[in-house]
């Protein structure tokens, strides 16, 4: 098991290296450090000297891949690629291009805010979607099934933007049940701010989720062991909620664990609309301020979490299915 995890971790390395190279190409070749300096200095008549100064300050005044001026270790380490790109592997994200704040501490500071929204949304919508999907599978090929599916397709066809905007209008502006946006970390007020974003998150994932899980359940329902269970005389409810659910865990888990990066990265839209200072709004701020260092770090972090979650998928398989052993 541990051998397997280590091996999978090592497989992840070349993938992250690829991500790193792609980012490097994008942020240092397509958009050169000189371009970056010009964007930040922002004036029309900037001298080469100013650009060089800016690059010096932010550590971009080095050769890209190989520093011919240095001898062996420095030849590789005294380069942009090593200092800006490879350092991501050690989680040294460096400083923001815009205000020199440390990206690593900022990410850690903001992560709990994102988790406050995404974790409840994730758990609630998973439970709700699974439950509704099972009910629909129970009443398959009846009117309930048809109408819930129609509802799901309609809900899937509406952009999350509309859920958030209309939700804010109805619950916060018209009914005044909850504040429009903002965040308060004191305990009782806390929920007031979280309720609406969580509700909107659950609603916007409803359509797709129910349809997906319904397909999984219907696949299970046509298998032999279900027929056996029915032949034994078990009720349809027991068959569905006990036997089918247990066996459907494998495809459900695949879908669920891959969501982990999105949990931590937060929702760009939700956080922006509701003024929650999490990682999602960090991204939005970085976009509007053209903060390339932050963007680079966030993309790498996203890919890293994805690779980790793939390993978690495999491990979780062994937990729900005793037939699977990781060797």
């Amino acid at each position: 098991m541990f051998g397997y995890i280590i091996r999978r971790g090592l497989y992840g390395f070349p993938i992250l290296l690829g991500v790193n190279l792609l980012l490097f190409l994008l942020f240092f070749y397509v958009n050169t450090p000189d371009d970056m300096a010009e964007t930040f200095l922002g004036e029309k008549h900037i001298t080469q000297e100013q650009i060089d100064n800016w690059k010096q300050e932010h550590g971009y005044a080095l050769p890209r891949f190989i520093n011919t001026a240095e001898s062996f270790p420095g030849m590789i380490t005294q380069t942009i690629f090593w200092q800006k790109s490879m350092s991501l592997f050690a989680f040294r994200f460096g400083k923001s291009d815009q205000d020199n704040s440390d990206i690593g501490t900022e990410v850690l500071r903001r992560m709990p805010y994102s988790l406050c929204i995404t974790v409840p949304v994730f758990i609630l919508s998973l439970m709700l979607n699974l439950f509704v999907a099972m009910i629909v599978a129970f009443y398959r090929a009846t009117y309930i099934d048809t109408w819930v599916l129609v509802l799901c397709v309609i809900m899937m066809s509406i952009s999350a933007l509309f859920y958030i905007i209309y939700g804010q209008m109805v619950f916060a502006i018209l009914l005044k049940l909850v504040p429009v946006s903002g965040f308060d970390s004191k305990a009782p007020y806390f929920f007031k701010f979280l309720m609406l974003p969580i509700l909107m998150g659950v609603i916007s994932s409803f359509g797709g989720g129910v349809r997906y899980y319904r397909t999984i359940f219907l696949e299970e329902i046509n298998k032999d062991y279900i027929r056996t269970a029915r032949a034994k005389g078990l009720g349809e409810g027991l068959v569905l909620f006990k036997h089918a659910l247990k066996n459907a865990m494998l495809p459900i888990l695949t879908n669920v664990v891959v969501m982990i990066p999105f949990l931590i990265m937060g929702g760009l839209l939700t956080e922006n609309f509701f003024g929650i200072p999490g990682l999602g709004s960090y991204m939005i701020e970085a976009i509007s301020r053209q903060d390339f260092a932050v963007l680079r770090s966030m993309v790498f972090l996203g890919a890293f979490l994805y690779v980790i979650s793939l390993i978690l998928v495999d491990i979780s398989y062994t937990m729900v299915d005793p037939r699977i052993r990781l060797g």
Binding site: L16, G18, V19, F27, P261, F292
Partner: peptide, 23 residues
């Protein structure tokens, strides 16, 4: 396989953001 694993390992929103900010 390597190329598409690398591309799909980046959450697509983040990749689009990174590209669009450069281009």
């Amino acid at each position: 396989q390597y190329i598409y694993t690398v591309l799909s390992s980046i959450p697509s929103v983040l990749l689009i953001v990174a590209f669009m900010i450069v281009f």
